[in-house]
Design a protein around this nucleic acid. Structure first.
Lengths: 200, 200, 200, 200
DNA sequence: TGCTAATCGAGACGGTACGTCTAGTCTTTTT
DNA sequence: AAAAAGACTAGACGTACCGTCTCGATTAGCA
């Protein structure tokens, strides 16, 4: 148990104690998993981690900062590479929604989005994170362009945006179980961006 | 002024006072406009409306319920009918984002989405509302299908979903100013769903 | 038990609930008695009284205000009237020191004096209280002046001050058991202020 | 400047650094002077002295211990010797109150008294200090007894106590400006203790 | 016409969480 | 071996809201 481990945890001198940091992030994750975003408070995390509130505030200036760290500790969904853009995108999207559905990640990420609506720093952190993920997803499309599967004038960022948007909406609306819709949506998009045979 | 009107507003007997209800919704909207979702609390609304908190709780059991009513009082964006599906969708999306950008609607709707992440009733209301809007948007696609512009086997709901997802994400990420992206995204989608000439 | 009584205590509408006020003052007294001034915190009182902190802050703006109320709920020491100023003053002083020694009053009052050293409002409240008590004590001297026992030009306030000073110091220094010193001190003072026989 | 001196002050190895001790006491005095007892905390002193808290705790186990050292570094008021007991006492008392009013001593001493109400070591130190001062003041009365000015059976300690009590109370009540009261009080006391001419 | 019942503004209630401050302890690093 | 520095747990501070409750005034509609 985290709590048992935490009991008696002390300062390790004039430097940050990684055990404390770890206990805090783990406690944050546990609180989110058990009580959801509604029950997620710095107080609750401190209680659970047997940490002092100032220790949390020292390293994570806001609830959002803590949420981001918790989210990033989660394993990320990999982008598949099947050699076919439609399968790549459908696979990625299905993996992502399944990941959000089956792990605490989904709860964490939607908490982060919610937090961003009333906290400026959360918004900034979310924007930064989104950009990073967008270029990551964009690489799938770039690969398909290189294969001649996708038209050269297609903006990979916008396609990645469409995919991410679809994912976000299904997360926020609590609709993570619509595999058929995912497949159809990806089909429409990939048809819309494929290179026309014989066209330069 | 709302406040001036409210001063001295009393019970009108054993029935709901529409003046109070009105003052409360107007105050809620004003608070959202001026202080954003972060400053939106029942207390603040009650103060602004010169109403008692129980009066608010009597008619709107949660922050979410009040948000929903405020949102529904907003004027909604109409779906254009240009006879061309790409123009219809691009116009609709641009109007929607502009509406969200230029009126309190955007703040209200993203507050509602945020609230839905920790409030079950808000989530339900949002789902119900989304469904309604989806079929509304879907009619644009159905019209295009009737014109033979869009393939008959395309699921109008999923296309409407893609459009709405794109809008939501840009709202939640504070990116309501990307007209070029809107046009490109709509182009990719409409290309992906158009009927192939000569095919049944 | 206070706590048992408090369980389930609710608001009685838009006016102060005397049960709550009572429970708070009683809890404050209990905390002082059991944990001393060092353990006396608004949090502790709120916990003990099963009251919310804001309820305490609503009615007692500072720790000092609460201390004063607690102190004033204690029975006050009466000023004797033996017809002899020396006996009056010695009796009063001995009663006061005994009262401070044998009841929680002493602890409360010295807490209040300590608090006044770092809290402006406590200082003001203490000054106000002291003035009130001074004129009360002064009446003993005025009576003696009326009897011709004390010289007419003696300032009763200053004599009362000397008496109170002696009491304060013995309280603050933890020397409440020096009856002989009290008698001697009063003798010196009364000798110093008595009317000289034959002098107008 | 203390701070300038402190900047970059380093350990001098395996022995107590007198510079640090000095800086800490000076900082404590400065904090008391500038922020009063209310702002006097080990943290504040450590910040001001650019010292670590453990350095303070190592040498002064409590706030009280530090206060005592600070107080003892102050210059003390001397007892005058005019050959007349009333002038001696009035002069002493006026000097003492002026000293408390015009230097940080007053703040420091009342802080010490306040601290003594919840700290046992402070109480002991204060008692020890008071005893020392009492016998010191008592010498004035003994001298007067030797001169035949004061009755032989008067207890010098109790008279010194009355004088000190008066001073303490005016310090603690923030009434250090009442010269007339001082003169009157001393007159009453000295009248009460003077030797009766012709009596043995 | 007089009673009942629901509504209103108002604000107190017990609570929870906020973000900051200080207490006193502990350990690493430096001299 | 001790000083310096800063992190650590713990918990109080005073404030903002939460959702509930009661009050006293008000008035519509039933009796």
């Amino acid at each position: 148990m985290d709590e048992a481990a935490a009991r008696g945890r002390k300062s390790i001198g004039a430097k940050r104690n990684p055990e404390s940091a770890d206990a805090i992030v783990k406690a944050a994750e546990a609180v989110l998993r058990e009580a959801g975003y509604a029950g997620f408070s710095i107080e609750a995390v401190a209680r659970r981690a047997r940490a002092g509130k100032p220790t949390i505030y020292r390293w994570w200036p806001s609830k959002a900062a803590l949420l981001i760290e918790v989210y990033q500790r989660q394993k990320h969904v990999e982008t598949p590479d099947t050699g076919n853009i439609e399968d790549d995108l459908a696979g990625f999207l299905q993996n992502l929604l399944a990941h959000w559905r089956d792990t605490p990640s989904g709860n964490i990420f939607r908490s982060l989005i919610a937090e961003a609506q009333s906290d400026e720093t959360a918004a900034a952190a979310l924007a930064e994170y989104s950009n990073r993920r967008r270029s990551h997803t964009g690489r799938m499309i770039e690969r398909a362009k290189a294969r001649g599967e996708v038209a050269a004038d297609v903006d990979a960022g916008i396609v990645a945006d469409l995919i991410a948007s679809f994912a976000w909406r299904h997360l926020l609306a609590g609709r993570l179980d619509e595999d058929d819709a995912v497949i159809a949506a990806v089909r429409y998009i990939t048809r819309g961006i494929r290179a026309i045979p014989g066209k330069v």
